[in-house]
Computed example of a mutant assay.
Amino acid sequence: MSMTDLLSAEDIKKAIGAFAAVDSFDHKKFFQMVGLKKKSADDLKKVFHILDKDKSGFIEEDELGFILKSFSADARDLSVKETKTLMAAGDKDGDGKIGAEEFSTLVSES
């Protein structure tokens, strides 16, 4: 399964373009632009599993750095600052990783 099975390719392209500059990434705006906010809990779980590259059941910090590439192969990597900001926003229990429930909360807060 790919992101375009769940989200509009056009929405993804616009969102990736909006955050092309380094240190411009805003997860709240990004999630809204790609259409994640309108998705069901089941669809959010599917997106979570795409982002969980190593299939550990969590999105770790190294996976977060490549989050944009999960939406579009030609997207940039997040900067260290952007990655740490996103982890801080999503890691509600402080264990250094984002679980499926934390991801759903992160998207819904956007």
Rank of each mutant, 00 (worst) to 15 (best):
E60R: 02
S108T: 07
F58G: 00
S72T: 00
L44A: 04
K13Q: 14
E60S: 06
D74V: 07
A88D: 08
A15D: 08
S104C: 14
A89P: 10
E10Q: 15
A88I: 00
F66H: 05
A20K: 12
K46S: 14
F19G: 12
D91K: 01
K97M: 09
E61P: 00
V80L: 03
L36R: 03
K45V: 06
K81L: 04
G90P: 07
K92F: 08
T105W: 02
G99T: 02
K55Y: 02
A21D: 11
E10M: 12
T83G: 03
I12L: 14
I12H: 07
V34Y: 11
F66C: 12
A75E: 00
G90S: 10
K69E: 06
D5Q: 14
F58R: 05
L51F: 05
D95F: 03
F19H: 15
D91R: 01
G65H: 00
D74S: 09
D54N: 15
A20W: 11
S56K: 10
E109V: 04
D23M: 11
S79P: 10
K45A: 07
G90D: 03
M3T: 15
D26P: 09
M87G: 04
L7E: 14
K37T: 14
I50L: 10
G99V: 01
G90K: 15
S70P: 00
L6M: 13
G65W: 00
G35C: 13
M1S: 15
K29D: 14
V22N: 09
V34S: 14
M3Q: 14
L68V: 10
D11W: 10
K13P: 02
L51T: 05
K55G: 02
I12Q: 08
K14S: 11
D95C: 07
E63V: 04
G17M: 12
L7I: 15
F103K: 13
S2F: 12
L68I: 03
K45Q: 03
E63H: 08
F58M: 04
D42H: 05
E10R: 12
G35R: 08
L78D: 01
E109W: 03
E10K: 15
D5G: 13
V34I: 15
V107Q: 03
I67D: 01
S24M: 09
E60V: 01
K38I: 05
D74G: 06
A75V: 01
A18C: 12
S79M: 12
K45P: 01
K46Y: 02
L68Q: 03
D93W: 04
S40A: 04
G99M: 02
